[in-house]
Simulated scan of single mutants.
Amino acid sequence: MTDDPTPGTRCRACGGAAGTVVLDLGEQPPWDRMPARDAPLPDPAAPLRMWLCAGCGLAQLQTDAAVAEELHGVEPLAMTEQSDRSVGRLARAGLVRPGGRVAEFGSPHGGSWLPRLTGRGMVALDADAVSAAGRADLVVDFYGLLHEPDQADALARRVALLAPGGTLALQLLSLGTVLRDDQWFDLRHGHYGYWSLPALDAALRRHGLGVHRAWWYPLSGGTVLVTARAGAEPDAGTRRLVDEERALAVTEPSGFARLQAAADDTHLLLDWLVAERAAGRTVAAYGAASRAVPLVCRAGLDASLLAAVGDASPAKQGHRMPGSDVPVVSPDELAGLHPDRVLLFLPELLDEVRAALPQVEASGGRWVVLGPGPRAVEPVSALSGC
């Protein structure tokens, strides 16, 4: 952790100038600029640092980098199921009702809750064209907030769309998860705000709201669904989640002490891949997702160590991983390589991808997850006792 090396940094939420760099990943290419497979290296890169505001406790991307329009991915089954759970939770809380008006701030990652909400009788409003006479009873943010460079303005725009007594619902990866599980790779260009529940509650109160309810789900290590409203009175479960994050020191530099060390441990992945190559084994990976880019670049991986990255998105196939010559291929092409090991960059997809690609294990291959070093998963045959 270091003092701010870039004079003039201002907090994206409160405008404060005092803060600390709590994670430095060096020069990294934008994850969304996925070059064509034959595009020459090197790729453009920019400093990638997480800065913690001393005033309001928001962890944030310190500097902006030019980002391109994202190549849309295929929404995984795990994400689809989580969206179903989240909308169901909102319905049980009485926030989804026929005739109710809803506006959504979506994510460039794809996916939307609007079909689920209108399917339950709600009326969708255009978030960019809501009039004072037709504000929303429910404003939902589906991983949209972190993509906003100006976090204060983003929150203000969401609050401004609420009708009196309305509710703001946000789904996000909590900073508490990032710190608890050393998920340093969740820092990337184009993702500007990393909210903890304590910092989010304080920011919402500056806009006249507060955290009313929070529910934790295991997706991506720990996703939270938060509802906010005026006069919020958190229940016992919500207070417990907030207290758990406070105990992790999510708004203090001391809480980030392990994060840089975890980022510096990518040599464990590199050493493993070198050993696999020396043993004559072919290693591929699955999931050309945004969080995979810092892993590949920080470890300095290339196609001599990692044969390919499989991904179900046709828009990504035929490209390569940013900052590397590792190609992105279709799932069928991945299976056709007959890899001995397949490193899964998105561990929550394990059940989904091994069901979709049974030929990996059928031909003697093993799925591998990181935690923090590579760990081979027991094959289905061993788990079933066959």
Rank of each mutant, 00 (worst) to 15 (best):
P98K: 10
W113K: 02
P42A: 13
R341L: 15
M50Y: 00
L337D: 02
G373M: 04
H189W: 06
V326M: 01
R37N: 06
W113R: 06
D141K: 00
G210K: 03
D150A: 10
M79S: 12
L346E: 07
D137P: 08
G176I: 02
A335V: 15
A18S: 14
G88L: 10
A154Q: 01
C56I: 03
L295N: 03
G385T: 01
G323F: 02
G121Q: 10
S112V: 07
A355Y: 05
W184Q: 08
A257D: 13
A103W: 03
L204K: 00
W184F: 08
V380E: 12
A292I: 05
V96N: 10
Q260T: 02
A203Y: 02
S83W: 08
Y217F: 14
P234Q: 09
E361A: 13
A335S: 15
R246A: 06
W216I: 08
L58T: 06
Q260G: 06
Q60W: 06
L305W: 09
G57I: 02
P164R: 02
Y143A: 14
L269P: 02
E333P: 04
V326W: 00
L138I: 10
P234S: 05
R298L: 11
A289M: 05
W367R: 08
T266F: 08
D3E: 14
R240S: 12
G166A: 07
V368M: 11
A289D: 01
L225V: 11
L41W: 03
H147N: 15
A54I: 04
D128Q: 15
P44M: 02
G336P: 05
A292N: 08
P115Q: 05
R239E: 13
C297Q: 11
A249S: 15
T6W: 10
H267N: 04
P44S: 05
E361M: 11
Y192C: 11
L344T: 05
A36W: 11
P339E: 15
P339I: 13
D3V: 14
A127W: 05
F105S: 13
R116M: 12
G318F: 11
P198R: 01
T80I: 05
L117M: 13
H212Q: 14
A127K: 10
V283C: 13
R101V: 06
L125F: 08
L48F: 06
P5W: 11
E70N: 09
D4F: 00
D43S: 14
A160H: 11
D265S: 15
L179D: 00
C53P: 04
L125W: 04
L146N: 09
G106S: 12
L200W: 00
V67D: 11
P149S: 14
L125S: 07
R33D: 14
A169K: 03
P42L: 11
G99W: 08
D141V: 00
A124T: 13
H212T: 05
T118K: 09
Y143V: 09
M122L: 12
H147L: 12
E276C: 07
V87S: 00
R281M: 09
E104P: 07
F185A: 14
D182C: 12
G166E: 07
A152T: 09
S254W: 02
Q60S: 14
V159L: 07
